[in-house]
């Protein structure tokens, strides 16, 4: 009995019975979403516990972004429920949703930094809008988060002057500035060089360990997924193929999963520089 508990602990899954009993931070039940008349997600069930890092993987077009958008409340599901911190995202009032959203942080794939604000102002924005702190305190708090993502000294740069990796780190800093309970990261390390990419992985692990955040990461990068995940959720064509620990997924006998894992390693990922070029192109 005890050996089982220990081995479970080794594989990162929180085996603490108290945690297991606690209500999940994220709970998705029978989620179905449509774009127009096309059904994209066909009944997703998923739960993420306190302090857990859940990695969502899957081929291109498998519905990862769609699932993330639904979790963020950006896409209304056709049916099914999404509970964040015990609250039904689509049933609560606007005021409650605004409050709920202050307890979650999101780092978007392209960063989504506000191009008219510099890095420090970007990171300070949630504080400015949701707290009554004075400007100096806000500045200090934002600087602390910049330190966490090793961006100190770049406070006054505009987003257009940042490299791809710096944008992702700034976006991460903005996502955690309110010390959220849940953190969502869309492709946090895609297209970055291995050093930066592994630094971001470390950062995510540290955030979980230091603040006990629950973290949902969408990623293409197998290596990074295996490094940070407590559990991996494999999506395929809008269905969940499996949810399991790194070991379970790696050793899965399921042919589709194996195909996916092997194919993924060769697949091209969206290069953030190219993404930026597309964005800036329209200004000319």
């Amino acid at each position: 009995m005890s050996t089982i508990a220990i081995s479970e602990h080794r594989s990162n899954a929180p085996a603490d019975p108290e945690l297991m009993a606690a209500p999940p931070m994220i709970e998705v039940r029978d989620l179905i979403t449509h774009y127009g008349t096309r059904e994209i997600l066909h009944g997703i069930n998923l739960s993420v516990r306190q302090g857990e890092i859940m990695v969502i993987m899957g081929g291109s077009g498998s519905g990862k972004s769609t699932l993330l958008n639904a979790l963020l409340g950006l896409l209304r599901p056709t049916s099914g429920t999404i509970r964040l911190l015990g609250q039904d995202l689509n049933a609560i009032s606007d005021v409650e949703r605004t409050k709920l959203r202050q307890k979650m942080g999101v780092a978007f794939q392209g960063g989504a930094l506000f191009s008219s604000l510099n890095v420090l102002e970007n990171i300070m924005l949630p504080l400015r809008e949701h707290t009554k702190l004075d400007r100096n305190t806000m500045r200090i708090m934002a600087r602390m988060k910049m330190q966490v993502v090793s961006l100190s000294g770049f406070e006054n740069l505009m987003p257009a002057e940042l490299s791809g990796g710096m944008i992702k780190r700034a976006a991460l800093a903005r996502a955690i500035v309110m010390d959220p309970r849940i953190l969502f990261c869309d492709e946090p390390s895609a297209g970055l060089d291995p050093v930066v990419s592994s630094a971001i992985d470390e950062l995510i692990l540290n955030l979980r360990d230091a603040m006990g955040m629950s973290i949902v990461v969408v990623t293409h990068e197998l290596e990074s997924a295996f490094k940070i995940a407590d559990r991996i959720c494999v999506l395929d064509k809008g269905h969940i193929l499996t949810v399991g620990t790194v070991e379970e997924v790696r050793n899965s006998a399921n042919e589709r999963i194996q195909n996916l894992l092997n194919r993924r390693t060769e697949a091209e990922v969206l290069d953030p520089d190219e993404y930026l070029r597309r964005l800036t192109g329209m200004q000319q």
């Binding site: 963020l72 949703r97 959203r101 202050q102 999101v106 809008e129």
Partner: peptide
């Protein structure tokens, strides 16, 4: 950026 605003509340 609009999505980012929404999810920040």
């Amino acid at each position: 950026e609009i999505d980012a605003l929404s999810v920040m509340g």
